[in-house]
Computed example of a mutant assay.
Amino acid sequence: MAEEKIKLLVLAGPTGSGKSALALRLAESIGAEIVNADSMQIYRGLDIGTAKPSAEELARVPHHLVSFVSPEVNFSASDFRREAAAVIEEIHRRGRKVIVVGGTGLYIRALLEGLVDSPEGDPELRRQFEGSSGAELLQKLAEVDPETAARLHQNDRVRIVRALEVFAQTGRPISAFRSEHGFAERHYEALKMAIRVEREELYRRLNQRVDQMLRDGLVAEVAGLVAAGYSRELKALRSIGYKEIAAHLAGELALDEAVELIKRDTRRYAKRQMTWFSRENDIYWLEYPESFATIQEHVIEFFG
């Protein structure tokens, strides 16, 4: 007999859409614990700029993988999958329900579907593609991996370069690795939901949130990290909000310039998240807080 799969509620979607607030309400109403799937909230000391749950919110419901590693750790999607799987198993063993919350699509995909067993990245090889435009790279990819090329836009440079890199290393298209991976056993039964927010309203919220981060002490937070000896080149400090304020502290940007860049890059990041999750065909898009009763009903029915 096949082993019964653990049920997960996954709340995904763009930053600023209200996922954390919805997760708290649902967790309290159904007896669940929250597993963070935001790649920056993983880091200790990066609190204000990552919009981490407050101390009061953390006290209301148990949260896992928040402030989990030090900023110098290069935490990957495979690291997340390993740690999240262990946490989910432990929560399930205690008879509690699990809500996975976050906007890092790769983390969620890694957890639910596993990772394609393709070779590690090669920075030297990647540099060979730096002088080519997205259109040129996509054309190169179409010649060796038409299946992957057909799924990508020329602006999706990261994935195009990754596919070219895999082919250069192995002589096999990345689509072949994905095809083999498609037969992998899924370990969880997931209900995936996201909050639908009109783009202009989302951008308004994000701009307001950046202003609030400044009032809450973002500059002092970044200054503290730099004073503690953390390099600006670390993955954690290259994230949105931290890299701009670090540049301001180094005298490279005026504060108002840094703030405008944070707002712009946050909006762009949210747009990329919306694009990522809109391509997932198994996500239920719902309004919140307007449809909370409906959401709650779906969730209760799912967990049975």
Score class of each variant (00 low, 15 high):
residue 9 L to A: 04
residue 12 A to W: 00
residue 17 S to Y: 01
residue 20 S to D: 06
residue 25 R to A: 11
residue 26 L to G: 01
residue 26 L to H: 03
residue 31 G to I: 04
residue 35 V to A: 05
residue 37 A to L: 07
residue 38 D to M: 08
residue 38 D to C: 10
residue 44 R to T: 13
residue 46 L to M: 13
residue 47 D to I: 15
residue 49 G to I: 13
residue 50 T to A: 15
residue 57 E to Q: 14
residue 58 L to S: 10
residue 59 A to Y: 01
residue 77 A to Y: 06
residue 84 A to V: 02
residue 89 E to V: 02
residue 93 R to E: 14
residue 102 G to N: 03
residue 103 G to C: 10
residue 104 T to M: 09
residue 104 T to R: 08
residue 107 Y to M: 07
residue 108 I to T: 12
residue 113 E to G: 10
residue 119 P to M: 07
residue 120 E to N: 07
residue 132 S to M: 14
residue 136 E to G: 06
residue 137 L to H: 01
residue 138 L to D: 03
residue 140 K to I: 00
residue 151 R to P: 02
residue 152 L to I: 02
residue 153 H to I: 01
residue 159 R to K: 11
residue 159 R to G: 00
residue 162 R to L: 01
residue 163 A to K: 06
residue 168 A to R: 13
residue 176 A to W: 05
residue 180 E to H: 05
residue 187 H to E: 15
residue 190 A to V: 08
residue 201 E to H: 14
residue 203 Y to E: 15
residue 205 R to S: 09
residue 206 L to N: 07
residue 216 D to H: 10
residue 218 L to S: 10
residue 224 G to R: 13
residue 226 V to G: 01
residue 231 S to K: 11
residue 234 L to F: 01
residue 234 L to C: 05
residue 235 K to N: 05
residue 242 Y to R: 01
residue 243 K to T: 04
residue 244 E to V: 06
residue 247 A to M: 13
residue 251 G to F: 04
residue 251 G to H: 05
residue 253 L to P: 04
residue 254 A to C: 03
residue 258 A to E: 07
residue 260 E to T: 01
residue 264 R to L: 14
residue 266 T to V: 11
residue 272 R to A: 06
residue 276 W to Y: 12
residue 281 N to I: 04
residue 283 I to R: 03
residue 285 W to Y: 07
residue 286 L to F: 07
residue 290 E to A: 12
residue 292 F to V: 12
residue 297 E to F: 09
residue 299 V to S: 04
residue 300 I to G: 03
residue 300 I to D: 09
residue 301 E to S: 14
residue 303 F to A: 12
